[in-house]
Design a protein around this nucleic acid. Structure first.
Length: 578
RNA sequence: UGGGGUGUAGCCAAGCGGCAAGGCAAGGGAAUUUGGAUCCCUCAUUCGGAGGUUCGAAUCCUCCCACCCCAGCCA
């Protein structure tokens, strides 16, 4: 009795679980740490295309801002001109916007802060907190020491402030070659944290920057630039991934040596990993450049542009990101969960269509030769407002090859000699005979009779039959190409990032990840289907119109298939007969 | 090896000293003009391990183990 009453407490049941970052924000709000402000940012480097892992971060940052009445900036962390490009900026802007997030007028670039960062660097030098070092890259590495061996101080570490100041100015002026000198923080060469062993703050890079052109030949390093970018923008919570955890002391060092209040705090969470795919920029690039896939928006790729082309909706992706949670545990999310999210979304919204992927001719012998009936079909049984449409029915139809079997296995509810089956939205038919190619054994056509009393909607249709098949009318159907997709990688474990050196993962590449079906037949409803539109092909799966389509050429991408219970039974049958 | 992290079901993940949420996957069943969707039921006597504190521990303490990250003038 008591228990029941407790269970009825809605306050308990509806309590949403809060991630650890939200808890930090809650505490900060409570303590009025930033005057109640919550300000985040999504700071991509424009050196590649965004993928589903970035989507997690985007949803986290923009989502946290939204939930807390705060703001979230979009900021390009463009501090390395040798890797970055305007092309990537454009694709990133498009993808974040497509995901449904709005940074209003707060689109920023690290490169816009270069002068201010330079001035701050000067301050560090003046304070004796930074110095120009003439060691070359190899020497710096040697002097750094190892995990177990402390580093050695640079011979330039104690040169005068004035000398560093003038050398730094000359670095900026272009007096020195790439790699010949750097500006370094003066911290602690024996720190157990290698990031604190006098990290490089500025390097010479005589490269044209995509935005600042040739204005600069020295560029700030991430560790120096990032905390400052956050500070300049009034960021309160600087959310990044786990690998930056050891950089946090440096993040704080930069800030506390330059500024005293309103300092942002870095918080790290685990990046997203997915089974059966690749997520690193390097591997993605490899697949694209080596032609394993067809470009950055190949529907097999977990890039945002690939997912979009595949037919994923922004809503489904956002929902997925919300549901996987945010924590510090390294994890590998099952890609089937992503697939579940898009199925769930499309089940509610996608128009139902009949499409035959592998056509088998079916002739209704007792149906009038020249008659065409306009039958009514529901557009979406999940949505009462979706309405109905007319579907032409005639004597010659096509059904799915797999929906007929000469010798039906156990629990096979589809068509077979003498068997009855319902044609969706039409009639109950009975198989009378079939034509088989004597040489190949392939079934060429199936002949049936229909029962006029069983037309859908009429009382006679109430009769129970085990199976319902989808079909298209031969003379009305449209020809289409259908692209079927399977997981990119066969192995369902994540790529081993430790074995980065080679491209081992390519051994797991699924050579059947793309299957192209050419002679598919789809309902005439799809005649002018716009690119990107989503449909459920009844009994098959969710599909969308690929941008390769044009007038007279319809191409569909399979987004996900429907759950196939028969497949399971079939497999069981096979196992049992062994 | 020094440092920084993390370990709750097959996969995510709540839990914050009062006796293991939820989702995905899996299995069973109901219903069904999509073998879809839906609906019901099952699925951790135990929280990496071992000790300890406590009336009471996934939660606190100690030790141990496993895994991840760091030795770019990348981010």
């Amino acid at each position: 009795m008591e228990n029941k009453e407790n269970q009825g407490n809605p306050g308990c049941e509806n309590k949403e679980s809060i991630n650890f970052i939200q808890s930090i924000i809650d505490k900060d709000k409570e303590n009025n740490k930033y005057g109640g402000r919550v300000h985040l940012r999504f700071p991509p480097e424009p050196n590649g295309y965004l993928h589903i892992g970035h989507a997690k971060s985007i949803c986290l940052n923009f989502g946290l801002a939204e939930k807390n009445g705060g703001l979230c900036n979009l900021r390009f962390d463009d501090t390395n001109p040798s890797k970055e490009d305007i092309e990537f900026i454009e694709s990133i802007v498009r993808d974040v916007r497509w995901l449904g997030f709005d940074w209003e007028d707060r689109l920023y670039y690290a490169s816009d802060y270069f002068e201010r960062m330079y001035q701050d660097a000067l301050t560090l030098v003046r304070k004796g907190k930074a110095y120009v070092c003439d060691l070359n890259p190899d020497e710096i590495r040697e002097y750094r020491g190892t995990f177990t061996k402390p580093g050695i101080e640079s011979p330039y570490r104690n040169r005068s402030v004035d000398e560093s100041l003038s050398l730094f100015q000359r670095m900026r002026d272009g007096d020195f070659e790439d790699g010949s000198r750097v500006l370094r923080a003066k911290i602690d060469m024996s720190s157990p944290n290698l990031n604190m062993r006098d990290p490089v703050l500025y390097r010479i890079l005589k490269k044209t920057h995509h935005r600042t052109k040739d204005q600069w030949c020295i560029y700030p390093m991430y560790d120096y630039a990032h905390p400052l970018e956050d500070y300049y923008e009034g960021i309160t919570h600087s959310v990044c991934t786990l690998e930056f955890e050891d950089h946090r002391p440096l993040y704080d060092w930069i800030l506390t040596n330059l500024y005293s209040s309103g300092l942002p705090q870095q918080i790290e969470f685990a990046r997203l990993n997915l089974t059966n795919t690749v997520m690193s920029k390097r591997k993605l690039r490899f697949l694209v450049e080596e032609g394993y896939v067809n470009g950055w928006d190949d529907p097999r790729l977990p890039t945002i542009s690939g997912l979009r082309r595949r037919g994923y909706t922004a809503r489904a992706i956002r929902n997925f990101c919300d549901r996987i949670g945010v924590a510090k545990t390294n994890s590998i999310v099952d890609i089937r969960f992503l697939e579940h999210c898009i199925s769930e979304d499309l089940n509610q919204s996608a128009q139902r269509i009949m499409a035959v992927l592998n056509p088998l001719k079916l002739i209704i012998d007792n149906y009038p030769e020249n008659l065409t009936e306009e039958l009514e079909g529901e557009n979406n049984p999940e949505d009462s407002n979706a309405g109905t449409r007319k579907i032409p029915f005639s004597r010659v139809l096509y059904i799915e090859k797999e929906d007929f079997q000469e010798v039906p296995p156990n629990k096979y509810f589809r068509l077979a000699p003498e068997r009855e089956v319902r044609l969706k939205n039409a009639y109950i038919i009975q198989c009378k005979e079939f034509v088989k190619d004597e040489n190949t054994g392939e079934i060429k056509e199936v002949h049936c009779t229909y029962d006029p009393e069983t037309k859908s909607g009429q009382p006679g249709a109430k009769r129970k039959v085990k199976g319902t098949l989808h079909w298209v009318s031969a003379s009305h159907a449209l020809t289409a190409e259908v692209r079927l997709y399977n997981h990119l990688l066969l192995d369902d474990t994540v790529e081993q990032q430790a074995e980065e050196e080679n491209n081992d993962f390519i051994g797991k590449f699924n050579t059947k990840s793309l299957e192209i079906l050419k002679g598919c037949l789809v309902e005439s409803t799809l005649k002018n289907a716009p690119v990107g539109n989503h449909y459920q092909f009844i009994r098959k799966g969710y599909f969308c119109v690929d941008p390769d389509s044009n007038k007279g050429r319809l191409i569909f991408n399979q987004i996900v298939s429907l759950r196939d219970s028969w497949e399971k039974i079939e497999k069981l049958n096979q196992d049992n007969s062994r």
